[in-house]
């Protein structure tokens, strides 16, 4: 018995060590980004680690850089790009919720011809690389007058957000016994109140997790805003690219931009963490 518990202990220590190693490995890029964002330009390419933290980069991004060089993103515009990203990501999620929740419910509950085909079609939007469809889309968008508009961007981002919402929520709805809905009908409630009072609260964890993931995907989306948007709808992802130019590469400013643009995601994730953990693990297994 002694031997056994000894080997158990060793296994526990080993697995802890592996986890810690992975933790460092996974967190390193984030820490590195944070460090770079706080470095002055001269320290970026040193061979030894030199670090004199400064908030210059953040200041430059948010309030303009007095020493701006030509070809660099115009100064005070970063806050506007941030707002653009916010509008587009939020708008995409809201539209997806509006259409995705009823669609997920229908796919979970009703039997109809071609149901699985339809569900698969939604999912297949995620298969095709965005680059495959981007050229025809760009042509279409120009002709329809959707190029560089909020509505156009929100529409195209549905390709990213809608399949996710539908597939996660569908498995949540399938998990709710139809008996519960029927019980509520018999208890004297019309369907829309059942949907609102009973079903929505029950899928809330899934809703939170899926909506957050959709938000993150929309926020991080790069190709669509790059090709289908221009000055009106520039997002932070596209704008961050602007800090790199043939003339000069402001890696430190790009890092600062990245740090700022990850704030909304972190805030959101923390605020709905309670649902998120349950939702992600559960939905992932089920879906």
């Amino acid at each position: 018995m002694e031997n056994k518990s000894g080997s158990h202990r060793l296994a526990a220590v080993l697995s802890d060590a592996v986890l810690i190693a992975y933790f460092i490995f996974a967190l390193f890029p984030i820490v590195w980004m944070l460090l770079i964002s706080l470095k002055p330009g001269e320290e970026l390419f040193t061979t030894r680690f030199v670090f004199h933290p400064t908030l210059d980069n953040y200041q430059a991004i948010l309030f303009g850089d007095p020493r701006a060089a030509a070809g660099v993103v115009a100064k005070q515009e970063f806050p506007r790009y941030f707002l653009n990203s916010l509008i587009l990501a939020t708008g995409s999620v809201v539209v997806s919720l509006l259409f995705g929740v009823p669609a997920a419910y229908a796919l979970a509950r009703y039997k109809f011809k071609g149901k699985e085909d339809l569900a698969f079609t939604f999912l297949s939007f995620r298969f095709a690389p965005e680059l495959v469809v981007i050229i025809p889309l760009a042509v279409l968008y120009r002709q329809l007058g959707l190029y560089d508009t909020y509505w156009g961007m929100i529409w195209v981002l549905q390709l990213v957000t809608l399949p996710l919402l539908i597939w996660v929520l569908r498995s949540y709805f399938e998990d709710i016994s139809p008996d519960i809905e029927q019980a509520a009908m018999i208890d004297g409630y019309p369907w829309w109140r059942i949907f609102w009072n009973i079903l929505l609260p029950l899928v809330r964890p899934g809703l939170a997790a899926a909506a957050l993931l959709a938000f993150i995907f929309a926020w991080n989306s790069f190709i669509f805003p790059l090709v289908l948007g221009a000055s009106n709808t520039t997002t932070v992802t596209v704008a961050a690219l602007g800090y790199l130019s043939s003339a000069q590469s402001f890696f430190n400013r790009m890092a600062a931009a990245a740090v700022i643009s990850s704030i909304p995601q972190i805030v959101l994730a923390l605020s709905i963490q309670r649902y998120l953990i349950r939702g992600l693990s559960f939905g992932a297994v089920k879906g």
Binding site: S177, D179, I180, Q182, A183, A184, M185, I186, D187, G188, Y189, P190, I198, P201, L202
Partner: peptide, 20 residues
């Protein structure tokens, strides 16, 4: 007549309690 207008009550085999 829709269920909510029938004045019938039912106890389900699965209980069908509202979990939340």
């Amino acid at each position: 007549v829709e269920p909510h207008k029938r004045n019938v009550a039912m106890a389900f085999e699965s209980y069908a309690l509202y979990p939340h």
